[in-house]
């Protein structure tokens, strides 16, 4: 019987609640300037995006660079549900994620038999097609964009981010997740061990698309305006960069990557003309000196607390 209330879980829970409470307090008492709030909510959105892309690229080893396409599907579907159909926010977000997952399934089935760079190009093409489809839909504003009210608060963004990360993390730790990792390590060996590689690849892809859609929905319902141009291949690159920066295949790495990259962008917002130049130099230098990213494939956490737990358990025996 696993003890769910081990020290590690309790400390994590306390940490999450404390973090939420501190930020929420700063917002409620109007101490937090809106620009910081924007950055924090963007960090939540990008954490969901990078973690879900990490599931596809890092855990399952499939080279996808069309993540912005799924984000766009989620953003537009949720906007249609909340604004055009006047549905509740949560339904909109969920609908966006589900439709995005469906898109992932439809795209994944034929393309996932491609390997390496070819898969990358096919997903890139998919992302661009999605963008052009929305560009041509006049009832969602076409190229000029779709304006919608900003309903997402820090509470929503944070809660959805925590739930998404826990779900993805648990998927990775499950039997299915192990199967995905085995595909990354050696697809042929995995197949010969009786793993249905196509099934797991498509599964990871669909789950990744689901959460990308969710993140897109949060983005749409926070940013006042969504435009097809926002979801171009450059946005996919941004997400990919976060994943690789943090550490491909490390969930905590993806989170760190999203935080670091968003913070760099935010810190450099005051010098817009230099922002992308500095980001570019940072990327190149980072890749040259640490191509595995900040975390590598390691996970960082409170495992030392767990070890103590295990020791305690052992000494009792």
């Amino acid at each position: 019987m696993r003890n769910w209330f081990n020290r590690k879980n309790i400390v994590s829970l306390l940490g999450i609640v404390l973090l939420y409470a501190v930020v929420q307090g700063l917002i409620v008492f109007d101490i937090m300037p809106p620009f910081y709030k924007l950055t924090l909510i963007l960090i939540c959105i990008y954490i969901i995006l990078s973690t879900s892309l990490n599931l596809i690229n890092g855990i399952t080893g499939q080279f996808s660079i069309g993540h912005a396409g799924f984000m766009a599907v989620g953003a537009y579907v949720s906007a249609m549900v909340t604004v055009i159909m006047h549905g509740p926010l949560l339904l909109g977000l969920f609908a966006g994620a589900v439709v995005s997952a469906l898109a992932g399934l439809i795209v994944g089935l034929p393309t996932l038999r491609l390997k390496g760079d070819y898969l990358a190009i096919a997903t890139l093409g998919f992302g661009e097609i999605v963008r052009i489809v929305f560009l041509n839909m006049d009832f969602v504003g076409g190229a000029a964009g779709f304006t919608l009210p900003s309903k997402i608060t820090w509470t929503w963004a944070f809660l959805l981010m925590v739930v998404s990360v826990i779900l993805i993390k648990n998927f990775v730790g499950s039997t299915h997740g192990r199967a995905c990792i085995s595909i990354r390590e050696n697809e042929i060996a995995a197949e010969s061990m009786g793993i249905n590689t196509t099934k797991y690849k498509v599964m990871a892809f669909t789950i990744g698309a689901f959460f990308a859609g969710l993140a897109g929905g949060i983005y749409a319902n926070y940013m006042y305006i969504i435009q097809p141009g926002t979801f171009s291949f450059l946005k996919s690159f941004d997400i990919l960069v976060m994943v690789v920066l943090g550490g491909l295949g490390s969930i905590s790495g993806g989170i760190v990557g999203a935080i670091v990259y968003t913070l760099i962008s935010a810190l450099l917002a005051g010098i817009p003309e230099w922002r992308l130049v500095i980001t570019a130099v940072f990327l190149v230098v980072m890749m040259i000196f640490r191509p595995t990213g900040i975390m590598g494939t390691k996970e960082f956490g409170l495992s030392f607390l767990r070890k103590k737990d295990d020791k305690n358990a052992a000494s009792k025996n």
């Binding site: 696993r2 501190v22 937090m32 969930i251 975390m295």
Partner: peptide, 26 residues
């Protein structure tokens, strides 16, 4: 099944420190 991940906590800590920094001086 583990409810909370190890790696997750790092993100939280980083986020926490960010928000603290953000909270100061403004």
């Amino acid at each position: 099944m583990r409810l909370f991940s190890k790696g997750f906590s790092l993100g939280m800590i980083a986020l926490l420190s960010v928000s603290l920094v953000a909270g100061c001086g403004t």
